[in-house]
Each structure stands twice: as structure tokens, then as C-alpha cells.
Simulated assay, not measured.
Amino acid sequence: MEPAMACHADRTAPVFQTKGLTKTYRQGDVEVHALRGVDISLYPGELVVMLGASGSGKSTLLNILGGLDVPTTGEVRYQDIDLAGASDRELTRYRRDYVGFVFQFYNLIPSLTARENVIAVTEIARDPMAPEEALDMVGLASRLDHFPAQLSGGEQQRVAIARAISKRPRVLLCDEPTGALDSATGILVLAALERANRETGTTTVIITHNASIANMADRVITLSDGVISGEHRNSERQDPNTLSW
């Protein structure tokens, strides 16, 4: 049997709640229904994997949870914050103070070192980690003064994770964080995300089309054609280092 880690998430009041969430886009004369009535609850400290094929609505849902987009109809709340009814200024404040983002592409500043890329966030955060602490958490303590061009793709993604967690976000939202990486490198990135979740207690959502990643989660939510098509809770979280695909 492969080694596993016990679930640790605190199942108390939800961090996020959505009810009847829909999102419709117009492409010319065509309406695209990205979300068709999504009800979910996410809890403090849990690590959730959202699975779905391209076009299933998972990125749209993540963008709404992160305050990057707003729903067409329905409710979405982060604790006491009504994200569906928030102004642009309120959403900006919410993203700045509560949310860390990790995307498929790293979006590092090429002219800054790893440490300086993290400092770009910690300088404007309310209660940041030391940049060195954040980079150590993702296994890059020896690469502080390297520029992105001197780092591998996996190392660049881990710098992006360090940057996201350095402001001590309440929520870490990850959109296909291993999508541009090979399996061995992707596992290093997933291990960094798991460690950040475990050591900081940040509610972490990873969206992916890769079903192999689901075993590392507390809970797995599957989306299909804009609706929740399945959900299950793992009895144990599998160590990311034992995953393969």
C-alpha cells in the first residue's frame, strides 16, 4: 500500500458557499452556459481537487471564487463577503487580502530574482512571510538569487507558489498548476502545494483535468458541462510524491 497522510481539514463553518451559481457568456449571437447552477461549500484548511475536462466550467468557477469574475445569477460568499454583489474596489481588496493564485503559466518578472519576485507581493501584503521562508517552504532556499531564466519550469512554478503563499492568504486557488509540466516535475509542484496547505492551513483548491491528482485531496469535486457531476471524500490523502501519471 502506498504511504498516505491523514486528512486534517477543519470541518466547521464553510469558507465559501455558492447557491444556484450560473455564468453565461455571449460569443456573437451564441450564448455559452459555462456554469448551470452550481452549489458547493468549501471548508477551512481543506485541500480540494476539482476535476473536469476542458469546457467543464472549472476555470470559470475558480475565477468567480477568486473575485476575478462575477456570476450571471446565483449566490457566492466568502465568509461574510458577498462576492456576487461586490464592487470592483471590494473585489480588488478581497483578492489582495485573502486570495493567492497559482496559474498554469508562471507569470514571473524576468528581470527579478526568485526572492525579488516574492518581495513584489510581500511589500504590499498586510502580514507577509519573509520571502526566504516562503521559498524555503517550496524547496528553493538555495535558489533565492536566481533569475527565472536560470530556473527550470518546475522551479519557476514553485517560485510562483512561494509568491502566492507569501502573503499568508486564507485561500489558495490553483488553475492547472502542473499543466505545462512533465510528471516528475509536476509531482514536485504538487508536493509544494500540499506542504503549503498542511503547514499554513490555507484552504487550497486545485483544478485539473488529471484524475491521478485527485488522490492527494481531502475532497474531490467533478464538474461536467457546467454542473457538479460528482463528489467524494478521500479517507486519506495520498502523498504527492507517490503519485504517477
Rank of each mutant, 00 (worst) to 15 (best):
P3V: 00
A6I: 02
C7N: 15
C7K: 15
C7M: 11
K19G: 04
K23Q: 08
E31T: 04
V32L: 14
D39E: 04
L42T: 00
L42N: 06
G52T: 01
S54C: 02
S54H: 06
S56E: 02
G57S: 05
L61K: 12
G66M: 02
Q79N: 09
I81H: 14
D82A: 01
L83H: 07
A84Y: 09
A84S: 13
D88S: 12
T92D: 11
Y94W: 07
R96A: 04
V102H: 11
F103V: 01
F103G: 07
L108D: 00
L112Q: 10
A114V: 01
A114F: 04
R115A: 07
V118N: 11
A120M: 14
T122R: 12
E132A: 11
A134K: 13
L144N: 10
H146D: 07
A149K: 15
G153Y: 02
R158Y: 01
A160W: 03
S166I: 02
T178Q: 06
G179A: 04
A184T: 10
T185M: 11
L188N: 14
L188W: 09
L190K: 14
L190R: 14
A192Y: 07
L193Y: 10
R195E: 06
R198Y: 09
T203R: 12
T203H: 10
I206C: 09
S212A: 15
M216Q: 10
I221E: 10
L223I: 01
V227W: 11
R233W: 14
R237Y: 04
Q238L: 14
P240Y: 04
P240V: 01
S244V: 13
